[in-house]
């Protein structure tokens, strides 16, 4: 469980997060949604320790990040898996080397043990035959799956995904969404996803945090988002006619 308490973050004169509090629960897919500039990425990067909030605390299962020393922070970071928006695969390494990277860096596993684990996770993300390919030789959807494999290879307790569906076709997006949800439940990890994709909200949003202008404007589940009368959420989530009709149908009980 990740607990965010009254987090504020500014860049120069501009205050991006204005006191956000929430709880991201273990074993659930927690989504952060909101318009561009609402503070989603800053919140995610604050959770990752890339940005330091000026006010407030972020605690990982009771461990308050700002109170940890450097060794404890490094230890905590080995428990974190991250899927970046552009995948951020190391382009000089093959798919297998990318996935093996956290194991080579942070464990004392032997080469056969690393190979066994890499084979296992690559099979888990349905990329059994891509071991020796370079990131530039595979599609965007495959790159995302490699990024997920790299994020989970070291059995993380926390998984963060920044726009995991951006640039992907609808079929691949659903595949990636389902994969993240399955992995979250299978390994009982705390997953936080920053997304613009309303399909993801409807499919896998077990806990949804809606940010507006750096403030928490709403939070709830995907079932609750159909019923909410919060104007900001309705205007954002149901901005397309398709989703308006989905909502109407849902409210009518179809």
């Amino acid at each position: 469980m990740i607990e965010v308490k009254n987090v504020e973050k500014s860049f120069g004169e501009s205050k991006i997060l204005k006191g956000v509090s929430t709880v991201f629960e273990t074993g659930k897919t927690n989504l952060i949604i909101g318009q561009s500039g609402s503070g989603k990425t800053v919140l995610l990067k604050s959770l990752l320790g890339i940005h330091k909030p000026e006010v407030g605390t972020i605690s990982f299962d009771g461990r308050i990040y700002s109170e940890l020393d450097d060794d404890e922070k490094r230890e905590l970071r080995t428990e974190i898996g991250m899927v970046f928006q552009g995948s951020a695969l190391f382009d000089s390494m093959t798919v297998a080397e990318n996935v093996a990277f956290p194991l080579r860096m942070f464990t004392n596993k032997s080469k056969p043990e690393i190979k066994e684990r890499v084979d296992f996770v690559l099979e888990r993300v349905a990329l059994k035959d891509a071991h020796h390919k370079l990131p530039s030789e595979i599609s965007g959807g495959m790159q995302k799956r490699v990024a997920i494999a790299r994020a989970i290879v070291n059995n993380p307790k926390y998984l963060f995904c920044d726009e995991p569906n951006s640039g992907l076709d609808p079929n691949t997006s659903i595949l990636i969404d389902n994969l993240i949800k399955e992995i979250t439940e299978e390994y009982n990890i705390t997953t936080v996803i920053n997304t613009h994709d309303m399909n993801s909200v409807m499919e896998i949003g077990e806990k949804i945090l809606f940010l507006k202008n750096g403030l928490k404007a709403w939070e709830g589940t995907k079932e609750e988002i159909f019923k909410t009368d919060n104007e900001a959420v309705v205007a954002f989530v149901y901005s397309s006619n398709l989703f308006k009709k989905v909502r109407e149908a849902h409210l009518k009980g179809y």
Binding site: I50, F84, Q85, G86, A88, D91, F106
Partner: peptide, 17 residues
């Protein structure tokens, strides 16, 4: 620089490298 632009450096930092 390319590693910076494509978030590969962020990926290293997030992993604790």
């Amino acid at each position: 620089g390319t590693m910076r632009v494509t978030e590969q450096i962020d990926a290293l930092e997030v992993m604790g490298v």
